[in-house]
Design a binder for these strands. Sequence first.
DNA 1: GCGACAG
DNA 2: ATCTTGTCGC
Length: 276
Amino acid sequence: MQVARPEFVPDASLSREEMEALQREIADAAVFADDLPFDPDRICGDGVATDTDQTSLADVDGDITSADDPPLVAGVDQAFVDDHAVSAVVLLRGGEVVERAYAVEPAAIPYIPGLLSFREGTAILAAFDALEREPDIALVDGSGRIHFREAGIATHVGVTLDLPTVGVAKSLLCGTPRESLDRKLPAGARVAIESDADVETAEPGTHIGDAVQTRQFENSERYVNPLIVSPGHRVSADTAADVALACADGYKLPEPTRLADSYADEVKAEVREELD
DNA sequence: GCGACAG
DNA sequence: ATCTTGTCGC
């Protein structure tokens, strides 16, 4: 699929100040409310059982899109080989993989907390460009609204493509959990993350995302840390968490993300040979 | 100066 | 993210 907002394409040649200014514009253009072309309840991967779950049967026609098919959900993840970023996208419908695509681009800048999209964004957009179909929503590794300027990588990619996106991170970049996360939460649980002084663009106390427990040990002292989920673009915080749980399939990472993760590793191994 | 932060 | 052995638990 193609870029919808060329003016927001990440440019690694910008100064830090310019990058931050662009992020404020992106956050301004972002929609942190539901504006989806489908009903989230119909994602139907396997999901973590929730009291609000509905009973539904997914049709498995595979490739052909019909009006009541489950939505196309994309998972995106990156791997690195030397100074090159490998971005992999995996598309699923009703839990079945229907397409995969990837791209390799040089990582123009080093990793800088708060500016991740300027390091990995080019490769991600190239991978989406290589994708034949247009996803209904994409899960991007990293933060979305949970960001110093509410413009994490999931938001940057979502706004640039004008695609609904959800940010899925393994740790908290900023913001304050409403309750301590230092305890064992049951599978399906969620704890709201509120903006604090570190989030310069939002009023303190704004619900900017959630800690989501997609998986948990039952008969053990050990426990799994929650995933940090936040709206990227065109989804609310509640729906972002719903989507992450609906895509969960027995592992901490949602299925689209897990598959994109392993696909990126697969491509990385191949790219490793073509190096000078 | 200190703290602190996705991937 | 990446570099890696062993170890724990289902």
